[in-house]
């Protein structure tokens, strides 16, 4: 095909997607962009607003509560995503071994993933319940814990316990992707490596990991985006408490716009969050591209 014609075909194929995205998101996005530079607040007659330029963003730079929320969200994202990747790969390696009932065991991976987030959150809240939860009961009955604990009421543990609930639900997805990628790694590579006397550790780093890193990184980026805007699980499990120790950026933006009705600064916070998430992802993508070029 001639370049011009190719170009036309390319755009033609993109048309349905672009039209849907533009039709639905263009107005809200422009609306948000405009709001971010105003002091708009929501009233019964619509927005009451005044143009205030960069004032919202200046306020954000100076907002220590928001900085704390960013710190918490980053902690949540880094810890849960990296644990999910490590666990996911380990489980994938395990389920790639030969053993009886493998198909059935593999199918189990779908279970946590299919449980709606809302249910997952309620389920873990009940498990962590300080008085009647099964976690306290289990840990004391097997002797790991002396007395019942308040898992979600203690700022020292609340965030980590939510992370644990998130990992349980989401690592099977990574495991599934890693498991699938493992099928593409040619078997003869391993045989050759064994002949050369490479041990299991070397084989993993030299053959297995390079074989699955491509698939893993897409999954990781998707999970990281999702984790950074995490909302539902905190909405159900802690609502930001205790003493703000689990208040994440999405919760922050939600409160600003919906609870305090400050549409203007809410929009500014939202844009800031998006920019941060974008920055984080692009740094990662750049690192990935560099790595690929090197190898």
């Amino acid at each position: 095909m001639a370049p011009a014609q190719q170009d036309r075909t390319a755009w033609l194929l993109l048309t349905p997607m672009i039209s849907i995205m533009v039709l639905v998101t263009a107005f809200p996005l422009l609306n948000t962009l405009w709001l971010a530079f105003t002091d708009a607040s929501l009233t019964g007659q619509g927005y009451v607003w005044q143009w205030i330029g960069l004032e919202n963003f200046a306020y954000i730079l100076d907002d220590s509560d928001f900085r704390a929320a960013v710190g918490r969200t980053t902690y949540f994202t880094v810890l849960s995503v990296s644990a999910e990747v490590v666990l996911g790969v380990l489980v994938a390696l395990l389920l790639n071994q030969e053993f009886k009932g493998r198909t059935l065991v593999r199918a189990l991976l779908i279970l946590p993933w299919a449980l709606p987030t809302i249910v997952n959150a309620v389920m873990w809240r009940l498990i962590y319940n300080p008085e009647y939860g099964s976690l306290n009961a289990l840990l004391t009955q097997i002797g790991l814990l002396d007395a019942y604990r308040s898992w979600l009421g203690d700022p020292a543990t609340a965030m980590n316990m939510v992370i644990l609930a998130d990992i349980w639900k989401n690592y099977p997805l990574i495991a599934l992707i890693a498991l699938a990628a493992l099928q593409t790694v040619p078997k003869d590579l391993y045989e050759a490596a064994i002949m050369d006397g490479a041990n299991a550790w070397t084989r993993f780093w030299k053959i297995t990991l390079p074989g699955i890193i491509g698939s893993l990184s897409v999954a990781m980026v998707l999970r990281a985006i999702e984790a950074f805007k995490v909302f539902d699980i905190f909405y159900v499990m802690t609502r930001g408490g205790p003493a703000d120790s689990t208040k994440t950026v999405s919760f922050f933006v939600y409160q600003e716009s919906f609870t305090y009705l400050r549409a203007g600064s809410g929009a500014a916070y939202a844009l800031t969050v998006t920019a941060m998430s974008g920055l984080m992802i692009s740094i990662y993508v750049v690192m990935l591209v560099r790595r690929e070029k090197r190898s």
Partner: peptide, 20 residues
């Protein structure tokens, strides 16, 4: 009850109704 710091009204009802 130190767990009060993570309780809502329903939790209070459950604890009280259980005789705790």
């Amino acid at each position: 009850n130190p767990n009060s710091r993570e309780y809502l009204e329903e939790d209070v009802r459950k604890v009280f109704s259980a005789g705790e």
